[in-house]
Lab assay of single mutants.
Amino acid sequence: WKITIYDQENFQGKRMEFTSSCPNVSERSFDNVRSLKVESGAWIGYEHTSFCGQQFILERGEYPRWDAWSGSNAYHIERLMSFRPICSA
């Protein structure tokens, strides 16, 4: 599993790669995730830290803005603060 997060939209700004769970992006000096690329595996992104709040399934691909992973939710969530890989047995 591999995911790359960015602190600006369209894959700009600070970037960081992960191959395992991140319970709080702010502990990695990110205020928020504004864009991301899922390089391999599937991940679950969460609205809040500690894997809480609205969940987003993140499959392999590029997500240049928050609405790319938020989709058409009843209330739009511009925040992604934690994530972890989906492990299959």
Rank of each mutant, 00 (worst) to 15 (best):
W1S: 14
K2R: 05
K2E: 06
K2N: 07
T4I: 14
I5D: 01
I5F: 04
I5W: 00
Y6L: 00
Y6W: 09
E9S: 05
N10R: 07
G13K: 01
G13I: 01
K14G: 05
K14A: 10
F18Q: 03
F18R: 01
T19G: 05
T19D: 05
S21H: 07
S21I: 05
P23L: 07
P23N: 07
N24S: 09
S26V: 12
S29P: 03
S29A: 10
S29V: 06
F30I: 14
D31W: 05
D31S: 10
N32V: 11
V33L: 03
R34Q: 07
S35G: 00
S35D: 01
S35A: 02
L36R: 00
K37V: 11
V38L: 02
E39H: 15
E39Q: 11
S40N: 04
G41V: 00
G41W: 02
G41A: 02
G41T: 02
A42D: 12
A42G: 08
A42V: 15
I44P: 02
Y46V: 04
Y46G: 01
E47R: 04
E47N: 06
E47I: 04
E47V: 04
H48S: 12
H48F: 11
S50M: 15
F51P: 01
F51Q: 03
F51A: 01
F51H: 04
F51V: 01
C52H: 14
C52L: 14
C52W: 06
C52R: 14
G53Y: 01
Q54R: 15
Q54A: 14
I57P: 13
L58W: 02
E59L: 07
R60C: 15
R60S: 12
G61R: 04
E62D: 11
E62M: 08
E62V: 09
E62K: 05
Y63M: 02
P64K: 08
P64T: 06
P64V: 03
R65Y: 07
R65N: 14
W66T: 10
D67Y: 06
D67I: 06
D67N: 11
A68G: 09
W69E: 06
S70N: 15
N73T: 10
A74S: 14
A74R: 13
Y75A: 15
Y75S: 15
I77D: 12
I77N: 15
E78F: 07
E78T: 13
R79M: 06
R79A: 14
F83V: 03
R84M: 09
R84T: 09
P85S: 04
P85A: 06
I86T: 12
I86A: 12
C87W: 10
S88G: 11
S88Q: 12
A89Y: 06
A89W: 08
